[in-house]
Amino acid sequence: MNSNANRNAKIKLFISRFVVYAILIFLAFLCLFFFWLMFVNSTRSNAQLQSGFALFPKENFLKNFYNAWHDGTIDIPTGMKNSFIVAICSALLTTYFSALTAYGTYVYNFRFKKAVHLFILAIMMIPSQVSAVGFIQLAFKFHLTNKLWLLIVPSIAAPAVYFYMRQYLQATLPLEMVEAARIDGSNEFRIFNQIVLPIMKPAMAVQMIFSFVGSWNNYFMPSLLLNDAKKKTVPVMIGTLRSADFTKFDMGKVYMLMLMAILPVMVIYIILSKSIIKGVTSGSVKG
């Protein structure tokens, strides 16, 4: 009787495990399938692509890579260079200044400390598109379209990154440490740069990655501000590719361009997936 019930429970567990793994494998397949097709198609010639469906790579990878890299209409090397400039500079500025601001409202007591903190939290969720109209108007007025720095500098004021840094400081930085450094005679900037920043390294790294990915993928603002082919970033070029006459394209090259567009982020993800996934939860609310 007892062993029978035990066996039933075991069978039930086996079946539920089987179903759960089947669901997980299906979802994992769904996440990878489209990217696999993109990769496979980036290794096929235009003729092979017209002739039918394929599930495995062919031999034209390098040829497509060469063609895409030297394409006359979509200048992907320039696009990637511009994207790297914007993404790296934004990542550095946003993490440094967010940490600085968070440190400012955490360590020092000043009259509007609480108000400043709450204000930044309150503006955190306002979408950037809401200021787009005025931003574009000013950019045209002062002839600042096609200037990459205009996409970089605003990242100094990033409320969400500030919030993350502030949470991190609260959890890791003992105020006694700052006091001790003051007694040693360090000035405030040196304390921040040489004592606090090293402590914040893990938080800085996570936010640098997310910020890099965010700017690398950013499409809305750059598509409105960049129309000079020499200044376009990768997403803007993808948009241009979409609006071009598709039928005339070598499709192998088109798939290769898409692969190039997502490759840097893919590489970062493959190397750092563990800390990225950890970073997803640490920035949000604590229950």
Binding site: W216, N217, V234, P235, G239, Y269, I277
Partner: peptide, 12 residues
């Protein structure tokens, strides 16, 4: 694997 699409360039 399931988090990966979140980081992919949406336009691409």
């Amino acid at each position: 694997v399931i988090y990966m699409p979140n980081l992919i360039m949406a336009s691409a």
